[in-house]
Design a protein around this nucleic acid. Sequence first.
DNA 1: TGAGTTATTCGTCATAAGACGAAGCAGCTT
DNA 2: AAGCTGCTTCGTCTTATGACGAATAACTCA
Lengths: 225, 225
Amino acid sequence: MKGALREKIASEITLSDYPGKTIRKWREELEITQHELSKFLELSPSVISDYESGRRKSPGTKTVRKIVDALLELDKTRKSSLYFAEPDNLNEIILSMKDFPVGLSPSIFLKKIQGVNLSKAVPLVRNIHGYTVLDSLKTITTLRSSDYWKIYGWSTERALVFTGVKFGRSPMVAVRAHPLKPAMVVYVRPERVDPLAVKLAELENVTLVRTQLSKSEVVSRLEAL
Amino acid sequence: MKGALREKIASEITLSDYPGKTIRKWREELEITQHELSKFLELSPSVISDYESGRRKSPGTKTVRKIVDALLELDKTRKSSLYFAEPDNLNEIILSMKDFPVGLSPSIFLKKIQGVNLSKAVPLVRNIHGYTVLDSLKTITTLRSSDYWKIYGWSTERALVFTGVKFGRSPMVAVRAHPLKPAMVVYVRPERVDPLAVKLAELENVTLVRTQLSKSEVVSRLEAL
DNA sequence: TGAGTTATTCGTCATAAGACGAAGCAGCTT
DNA sequence: AAGCTGCTTCGTCTTATGACGAATAACTCA
């Protein structure tokens, strides 16, 4: 599984306007200090800072690769590895999951699940390349933040469908906190939707959707796609 | 859909030992000449050659990004765009498709479909992160080589399951010809398996598998995973 | 045969990357 | 107040990148 994350980080750094900021993002996400990283790479700590601060604007592929590999290696060889934890009770958390061969337009996706768009400030343009249906409570309580990336499968351009939602606050907070962001978040029969959730969605440019269909109905409709 | 391919190419270049070779691979895959590329980028053609030949060993992220974007842009704005063709009859070709939340060990995957490993020279180590079930004949006859990438979903570390296979030659030739390679190729009830197919599989380090289960049985077993 | 396309090699140049170490600053501890 | 950690800023150095253009070589095709 290393490959997918390695590629994700590498492409994100390479395609970023500010590679240094992206390096920093992932270093912090993996809870590695500049000093640790520089020690591993046998470099002066100031070098890392120079990259992250943008003094070096366009690091070479060799540099990017060794930084990515160092980050993953440092994370791996650590007592509480964030991204190399053992596979756990994912099957209880993930109720259904799929990736589409071709991207679906968000409006078509919405119709299929009779969804209502709550985040009107977010333009409905990001195509949906898959979905993951999650038990909201179990996700929040048993999934370590560090395992969140596993629910993204092979694209973050997907819909995260949360069931068992009360106010819809925690799921959006989780999305906000984690570096990987979905294109869409769907709440299945929420009791009500907290305005903060909508605000967070708009901040993250994530489409927030509510559907009043039942959990099983949503799952069967999605699996029929 | 541009994003996924863009990220794929970018990460491949960045993580490659020889970024230049990877650039060349994708330029040729997209059927773009050095001259076209250099003209688009307002550069001298020799610059591209210098990159590809490895004179510049570690191009900066800025350079990689503009090359990747130029390649995709040039492909897009062309009469017979290879990677931006309209969505077509994919639904007829793809019988089933899924990505797993966690990688499956190849031996477990084999057991699930009662598969027999034909490529003994290939070590059984690449985890399977998803599968695509394809109608072999339709794939070969109606899917343009340029659309092959659509069957890979979000990871190439997957099993391509071909149904309606006679000798199993064409599918492996297709795999050999295309830059994206799966981790595993499965033939569902082939009449017989051409030794050349095995040879090609071993050359590409792809596990080649035969199962005698029926098409519908294989699909239902896979979808139950 | 000779023009046209495609790609390579290479000398050269300015600028940026890649690296160091010293100095400095904010925020904690003890 | 002294010391530690985490990070930043900056002057300085060597080397490599990023770019050019000219020369060359191999191929096709009229």
